[in-house]
């Protein structure tokens, strides 16, 4: 088995259809986000929206494929790097633990998708998340995946938990709360390893934070994740603080979302 497994080759059964980045970006109608679309007027994702339940359903499918890719990414980090030469033993143990967590998240998301009436493979999959997990520098990989993407997962799960609460859906609220606990742990892993591995390497720290920003920006299309009342996905300060984000870092993500929103085609 090779080191660094390309995103295009991620193994899927016939139900899953991959949408390439070119296809995604060349859609003149705008980029799809959070089970909705960039061209849609921004609104916080709640059951009160006419298409709220359907958007939540589509978002759950997005979460499900995201969990598969998170599992695959954490698994590859176990394989791609050598203990001692590239990474400490304990980092790999964390990644193996994350594999187990993400496998459970897949199981939870499959069950939730069924609960919401979504079939596996019903929506297109894009490999953006896993692509961030292909970075050959383990510090950059962990920063991009565990801090940027898993940070986004915190925001998404918290929004879905509130959605479940507002809809009176005890299953959704219960599951999202558990997944949220795991994701805070994963983001914290990213924060801790970033600090430990770059303690004496400022340049690498800066590179890693820059990569995190690139990934954060990729997932900020149209400012769909932010702190404004009508941001479809709400930026979650409290859980991000628990996971090792400083106030400045959270402010920066909020600003980035606001910029992306201002730049979005109306």
């Amino acid at each position: 088995m090779r080191k660094i497994f390309p995103a295009e080759e991620l193994a899927r059964d016939a139900r899953f259809i991959r949408q390439t980045n070119e296809q995604r970006l060349s859609d003149p109608r705008g980029t799809r986000v959070a089970g909705g679309n960039a061209s849609e007027q921004l609104a916080k994702l709640t059951p009160g929206l006419a298409n709220g339940p359907d958007r939540a359903r589509a978002l759950m499918h997005g979460i499900f494929v995201g969990e598969i890719q998170a599992l695959e990414g954490a698994g590859r980090t176990c394989w791609d790097f050598e203990v001692g030469e590239d990474v400490p033993f304990e980092l790999k143990l964390d990644m193996a633990r994350q594999c187990w967590d993400e496998a459970r998240h897949c199981e939870i998301s499959v069950s939730l998708a069924d609960h919401m009436g979504t079939e596996l493979g019903e929506f297109a999959e894009n490999g953006l998340l896993y692509e961030a997990a292909c970075n050959p520098d383990p510090v950059l990989r962990l920063t991009g995946v565990n801090r940027a993407l898993e940070g986004l997962a915190i925001d998404v799960f918290n929004t879905m938990k509130e959605f479940g609460n507002l809809a009176g859906d005890p299953v959704l609220e219960f599951c999202e709360d558990w997944m949220l606990a795991d994701e805070v742990t994963h983001v914290k892993m990213g924060s801790d390893w970033l600090r430990r591995l770059t303690e004496n390497d400022k340049e690498r720290l800066e590179k890693a934070l820059e990569f995190q920003k690139v990934v954060d920006r990729l997932f900020s299309f149209n400012g769909f994740r932010g702190e404004d009342d009508d941001s479809p996905i709400q930026l979650t300060r409290r859980f991000r603080e628990l996971a090792g984000f400083s106030d400045d870092e959270i402010d920066e993500i909020a600003d980035m979302s606001r910029e992306a929103r201002a730049e979005a085609p109306s």
Binding site: P47, G52, P53, D54, R57, D114, H115, M116, G117, T118, A167, G168, D169, P170, V171
Partner: peptide
């Protein structure tokens, strides 16, 4: 068809 999808929408409006 998509009975479960419709049921989910119905539950969102009428309770779980």
């Amino acid at each position: 068809g998509q009975q479960k999808r419709r049921q989910y929408q119905f539950r969102n409006r009428h309770g779980f």
